[in-house]
Simulated scan of single mutants.
Amino acid sequence: MLREIKVQDAVGRALAHDVTRIVPGEYKGVLFHRGHIIEAVDIESLLSIGKEHIYVIDDIEERWHEDDAARHIGALVAHESLTFREPHEGKVQVEAVWDGLWQVDPDALLTLNLSSQLAFSTRRTLTKVRAGERVASIKTIPLFIDPVEIEQVEQVVRALATPLFTVKPFMPTKVAVVTTGSEVAKGRIEDKFGPALQKRFVHYPIEWLGQTIVGDEREDIVRAMTAYIEQGAQMVLVTGGMSVDPDDRSPGAIRQIATEVITYGTPILPGAMTMLAYHHDIVLMGLPGGVIYDEHTAFDHLLPIVLAGIRPDKRMIASFGHGGLFV
């Protein structure tokens, strides 16, 4: 068990925990590590950071130290897509090994945070992450933790059908764009969709097959989409013509080609009029004008998901309303 003693009485005793020194705006780091044998010369250093008492350990055979517990749980949830840093002050930092889609089991995460004295903090699930980015942290709350707590975590994690944490890599994908609108096709205004999309694509393993500009007729849109599918496109994006105006015929064209329509409309703003469908395994999306003007839209939320090989259903799309307001 832990016992508190005055630092003046601690000479010759081993520290039960790391002692951190903080200089606001300049430095935060370990002054003395766990296990350090306190010497007389250390007393003034400890007092200078406000440590008039420290913990020493009596009879700890049956309890886990915070660093050992964090290291053990990190190993338990390890995955090839993740790097686990060495624990510091009972905390393990988790980083992505490669670019991809960050996935968490939210129900298991809630269970773990309700039932144990370990805190699991993560990035929001189904979001794009880059290699080397921190995606999660596992922190032991007490300095020493009962083995029963560790066993409870082990039971939850081992019962999972899929990993608690993972980064699903993006798949190389051939993408084509069909831009609609008589005003663009006739040269009255300059197309802005193509540049906006290509700027986004640099962050993914996307092969740009090309862009075709057509008018507002459904047959022309269908013909252009079909041509790209025959060329091997794995994703066809139809831009413009996604509102309820009589000349906006993109949704009808997508429906004509699709073997499955997931949704026309999302609870994500900007981009509520986005459409997601499939022609067998080929992704079909209809993109409204917000893609040109807004940095993050429904399209930006959906793109990493479908590029990771996940096929959203209506329930998943509906769930994006929580946290789906980006303006």
Rank of each mutant, 00 (worst) to 15 (best):
K128N: 10
G309K: 11
V238N: 01
V184G: 03
R218E: 14
V30L: 10
T239C: 14
A318S: 14
R315N: 12
M235V: 12
R71A: 15
I262W: 05
S243A: 10
P312Q: 04
L109C: 00
I262D: 08
R315C: 10
A318I: 13
I43Q: 03
E260W: 06
I305C: 01
E151N: 08
H53E: 12
L302S: 01
L269A: 07
D220P: 03
V178R: 01
V41G: 08
I73M: 09
V202I: 14
K199S: 13
T274M: 14
A224P: 06
E219F: 00
L82A: 04
S115R: 14
K91Q: 11
D245T: 14
S137P: 12
A233N: 08
S182A: 13
F120S: 05
V30D: 04
H65C: 12
A298M: 07
E295P: 11
V157L: 11
Q234H: 04
E44R: 15
M273V: 13
T263L: 02
M242N: 04
I145L: 15
T274L: 14
K139P: 00
R315M: 14
H53C: 02
M273L: 15
G289K: 10
S250A: 15
V283L: 05
M275Y: 05
R158G: 07
S121C: 06
P246R: 09
V156Y: 01
A136N: 03
E133K: 11
Q152P: 05
Y27D: 08
I73G: 01
